[in-house]
Design a protein around this nucleic acid. Structure first.
Length: 303
DNA sequence: CTTTCTGTTAGAAA
DNA sequence: ATTTCTAACAGAAA
């Protein structure tokens, strides 16, 4: 679920929450989500702290203060980082998640009762980081597509080479953007979502960018005019920054580390609006399956 | 009950 | 070489 605006929101939130805090204890509940042995991760993290957090595309990079190791975290579809200042994370964050959803405090109260009756523990927490000050950070992922990977500085460089230009980095220039489209035989949407060309755009924002630009997602990237490429470039920046200002899109699973939701789903123009009126013309939003993904567009104003 | 769908992406297949 | 499809998984919706 999380695309660039969501991952960037998590990066900003965590940067305020955990930087400089001594990591007292690392607990791994599900080693399958790790790309290293659990002991390697524990030895590298315990007794140290995170110094800064960066991001390329949808990949988070948590730099350790030993200046030698970086913890990479990918949330894939349903991954979450949850942070809580004190108390049992099982008892604290889950009700918070419910409280932030429809039903609000009532649902949170129901969950507390349910938990008390069944002795239920919070599900899908695969790794838990406990800090010296009593606060805790959980890595949670229902579908287990996400992962944590500890790398050294040299390996990070190799990882970054797999990624294209990031819309929030200073190498995101019109020239390099155009280069991603040059002499390529695939569609606009396919290029926008190709992480090796442009890093961070996923299914939702690809559709939104195409709509703002007035171009169909399936349209071939070949034969685009200079002006159309320019519009795509500026739309990509606009759509992603707009979503970031609204702290990301929560359709189902995305939450910020404090359990609160993003607000950008109210801003979407085409994604999830099948059958509804286009906000720009008299058309109706269509949904097709393209590249194995739900693809939304207005047949009337997108050419 | 079973089947279908989901915001990602590495690796396979075309 | 480049582009598209599929599998990994869990759970909500149909």
């Amino acid at each position: 679920m999380p695309e660039l605006p969501e991952v960037e929101t998590v990066r900003q939130d965590l940067s305020e929450q955990i930087l400089g805090k001594l990591i007292a204890k690392v607990t791994i509940h599900q080693a399958g989500i790790l790309k290293n042995p659990a002991t390697t991760l524990r030895r590298a993290l315990e007794g140290r702290s995170f110094e800064k957090i960066e991001r390329i595309g949808k990949l988070l990079q948590l730099f350790l203060d030993d200046r030698q190791h970086i913890l990479l975290a990918h949330l894939k579809m349903t991954g979450q980082f949850l942070y809580q200042k004190s108390g049992k994370i099982e008892a604290g964050i889950y009700p918070l998640l419910y409280a932030s959803q429809a039903g609000g405090e009532k649902a949170a109260g129901q969950f507390r009762e349910h938990q008390a009756e069944r002795g239920l523990e919070m599900q899908h927490i695969h790794a838990l980081f406990e800090f010296q000050d009593g606060s805790k950070l959980a890595f949670r992922d229902a579908r287990k597509f996400g992962y944590l990977q500890l790398v050294k500085t040299a390996e990070l460089k190799k990882v970054e080479e797999r990624y294209g230009i990031d819309p929030l980095r200073n190498n995101y220039t019109l020239e390099l953007f155009e280069k991603a489209f040059l002499r390529r035989q695939k569609s606009i949407k396919s290029i926008l979502m190709d992480q090796q060309l442009i890093a961070g755009i996923g299914n939702i924002y690809a559709d939104e960018i195409c709509h703002q630009t007035g171009l169909k997602p399936k349209k071939s990237a070949a034969n685009l005019t200079k002006k159309q490429l320019e519009q795509l470039y500026f739309s990509s920046i606009d759509i992603l920054n707009h979503a970031l200002r609204h702290k990301g899109t929560t359709l189902k699973d995305f939450t910020r580390p404090d359990g609160s939701k993003g607000e950008n789903h109210f801003q979407l123009q085409v994604y999830g609006r099948e059958g509804e009126k286009c906000h720009r013309c008299a058309g109706t939003i269509k949904k097709i399956v393209y590249l194995g993904r739900g693809t939304h567009y207005c047949d009337h104003c997108q050419k």
